[in-house]
Design a protein around this nucleic acid. Sequence first.
DNA 1: CCGCCATCTGCTCATATGAGCAAGGTTGCC
DNA 2: GGCAACCTTGCTCATATGAGCAGATGGCGG
Lengths: 323, 323
Amino acid sequence: MIDTDELLSIRAAELYYEENKTQDEIGSILRLTRWKVGRLLAQAKASGFIRIEIVHPRARRLPLERRLREAMGLKAAIVVSSAGVSDDEELQSRTAQAAADYLTSLRPIPRTLGLSWGRTLHDVSLHLKQGWAPGVNVVQINGGVSLSKRTGTAATTAVMIAEKASGSATLLPSPAILERLETKRAIESDRAVAAVLNLGIGASAYLYSAGQADASSALVDSGYLTAAQIDELVQRGAVGDIVGRYIDSSGSIVDPELDERTLGISLTHLRRAPLAIAVIAGRQKHAIARAVVSSGLCTVLVTDEATALAVLGDTPDSEPHSS
Amino acid sequence: MIDTDELLSIRAAELYYEENKTQDEIGSILRLTRWKVGRLLAQAKASGFIRIEIVHPRARRLPLERRLREAMGLKAAIVVSSAGVSDDEELQSRTAQAAADYLTSLRPIPRTLGLSWGRTLHDVSLHLKQGWAPGVNVVQINGGVSLSKRTGTAATTAVMIAEKASGSATLLPSPAILERLETKRAIESDRAVAAVLNLGIGASAYLYSAGQADASSALVDSGYLTAAQIDELVQRGAVGDIVGRYIDSSGSIVDPELDERTLGISLTHLRRAPLAIAVIAGRQKHAIARAVVSSGLCTVLVTDEATALAVLGDTPDSEPHSS
DNA sequence: CCGCCATCTGCTCATATGAGCAAGGTTGCC
DNA sequence: GGCAACCTTGCTCATATGAGCAGATGGCGG
């Protein structure tokens, strides 16, 4: 009878969801009372036979967000649906859009926003709407790309975000990584630079992304690091970088010497921040996302469905079934 | 505002379908009246953003069935869902199961069932349950595989179906295709054979499948035709065969001479039958399925989702979207 | 064979939802 | 600017649905 019931619940579901019949009508078709039909339907849902998906570029995954918040102790989590998306491009764009939405809806509006830079954040800046906030002071929290071909990307991102909020942008006039420790110390203590760093330390919110540990990193692109150096970092356990600093899966600095030469706010500071928003999307970034979240580097995570599952340690898509 | 509404409808859908909130609750979350929420939800559904799928091996596609019935003038159509199925194997098994279910539920129970043979029908026979009907006389309607390595498949199918219905099986003691027309005529007029053919002509229902026109056909396997002959048939427009007879996309006999040498009931007779059930599944059989249905060779079609769409002339999966 | 526990069934009643309507607001046209 | 057609909004009311409960059913040990 258990088997018959399962089959009946499928028939009922077909009539209910595909033919828009009422439970009562289904009852007379299948020769059941309408209460039985209701129960069969509930059973079908509970067994996972009914799959409801919201197919839209802006769709989110509320249950996953909840799980992330609860399991990882996050203040908030934004997970965009990857339903029907194959390429990472699209995924990143959706996530950036979601980050822009989240920023826009943030209350209270942060007075000062500490900002990192990268492809992802640039994408976020593009998605923000003019007037998204009434005046925000944007401060760079790590050294910019100045050696790069794509010069000014870092500055552009900060300026655009500030401009769209009718606020001001404060740029950090320094390279991301210095070759010599002394140089770094010197720059750091320069009045102009120190002032910016201090502003950054006092920011009411942080927004940053993460890079995976491989040669595609913007830090390599910009000439701060060589592919060989990255390889070595990977050897030593690096899964990716945030604000220019490479961490391993436990969230620890991989190469303290290198880190010392990296200019910008420290991870310790980031960990203490009451509002640190990480925007991380894409198949390549599961490991770094996991490291960031589990080591408490962010209080808010904006990401895609697959990355969220990876962070939670779920195997991606193992269907519960009982046929 | 239209854009805002779309976004809102997505947010509402998330809360409604993923968080099981009531429209009223959603109203207070999104600062809308509950009626607005209801309308947004309706809009989201209408725009196709809400996709509801029944994930179960026995799930059917009622709306497709209706379209098939109406557009193709069928008496009934059974379409099994291909949700989450990748291989043809599984698809065919599901379809065979559905055919067995349909047969079992047939009222009035056919007194005499004209039966073809093949992998698909064998599969159907396996899925039928002992006692599926109280006595059915099964009659073969085309010549069996007797030259084959898998000798007796045709007979086994008929016997098993009859046995499971506590009925009797009448086998057609003849090859499917004869080499010489005279031989065919001779066999055909043999008392024993003629009697079976007559029984077949008087059957109250027919059940048959179809083969695609390529070298994988059971007719090649059994030695009735060579791969080269099939190639030639394809050249002449053959899309597949039913009851051993090759037809083109318009349902006409491709090679009248060959057809003359094929022993079994004629397509004309099949077209006149009030109950002719075709069971056709799999990616390879879209063309033959289309030919069978559009030329009125069956009154009932049991098939899979993708084949059904092909029969209807729909491009498989073009999502309506409006982002 | 009897009664007990567990499950299943059909019900009442509260709640959630959708249809339809009238009022208010908007758009476009003169 | 004024008017009309249209659309949107908030409502009433009928209907559909789910929670919870009492009685029926059925398997099982005593």
